[in-house]
Amino acid sequence: MRLAILGASSHIAKDLVASIAAHTAYACTLFVRAPGALDAELQAIAARKGFAVSDYAGFDASRQFDAIINFVGVGDPARAVQMGKDIFTVTEQYDHLALDYLRSHPACRYIYLSSGAAYGSNFAAPIDEASQAVFPINALRPQDWYGAAKFQAECRHRALPEASIVDVRVFSYFSHRQAPQARFFLSDILRALHSNSVLEVARDDMLRDYLTPSDFLQLIDRILQAPPCNAAVDCYSQAPVGKFELLAALGNTFGLQHSVVGDQARVNATGPKAHYYSLNRKAEHLFGYTPGDSSLSGVVREIRQQLDARD
Rank of each mutant, 00 (worst) to 15 (best):
Asp100Gln: 12
Arg48Cys: 01
Ala133Pro: 13
Gln43Leu: 12
Phe51Val: 02
Gly58Gln: 04
Glu92Gly: 04
Leu99His: 06
Phe31Cys: 08
Arg156Lys: 14
Gln132Ile: 13
Gln43Lys: 15
Glu41Ser: 14
Met83Asn: 00
Lys85Tyr: 11
Glu154Phe: 04
Ala133Thr: 13
Ala25Lys: 14
Tyr112Cys: 05
Tyr119Val: 01
Arg109Glu: 11
Asp144Lys: 02
Arg48His: 07
Val72Met: 06
Ala148Cys: 10
Leu140Ala: 09
Arg141Tyr: 06
Ala78Glu: 12
Asp100Lys: 12
Ala153His: 02
Leu97Trp: 00
Pro136Gln: 10
Asp100Trp: 01
Ala22Ser: 13
Asp128Tyr: 14
Arg48Asn: 04
Ser19Ala: 15
Phe65Val: 07
Thr29Pro: 01
Ser114Ile: 07
Asp55Ile: 10
Asp95Gln: 15
Thr89Val: 13
Tyr56Leu: 05
Ile137Trp: 14
Tyr56Phe: 15
Trp145Glu: 00
Leu42Trp: 00
Ala139Pro: 01
Val72Gln: 04
Asp128Pro: 13
Phe135Ala: 11
Gln93Leu: 14
Val32Ile: 12
Phe51Asp: 02
Ser104Glu: 13
Arg63Trp: 04
Phe88Arg: 05
Val53Ser: 05
Ala40Asp: 12
Phe151Met: 08
Ala133Gln: 13
Phe88Ser: 03
Ala37Gly: 00
Asn70Trp: 03
Tyr101Ala: 05
Ala125Thr: 11
Lys49Val: 03
Phe151Ser: 05
Val74Glu: 05
Tyr119Gly: 02
Asp76Val: 11
Gly120Ala: 12
Ser19Arg: 15
Phe88Asn: 02
Ser104Ala: 15
Tyr101Met: 06
Pro126Lys: 06
Ala125Lys: 10
Ile69His: 03
Asn138Arg: 11
Pro35Asn: 01
Glu129Trp: 01
His96Asn: 13
Phe31Glu: 09
Pro142Tyr: 13
Ala25Thr: 15
Val72Ala: 09
Val81Leu: 12
Glu41Phe: 04
Arg63Val: 08
Asn122Arg: 08
Val134Ala: 12
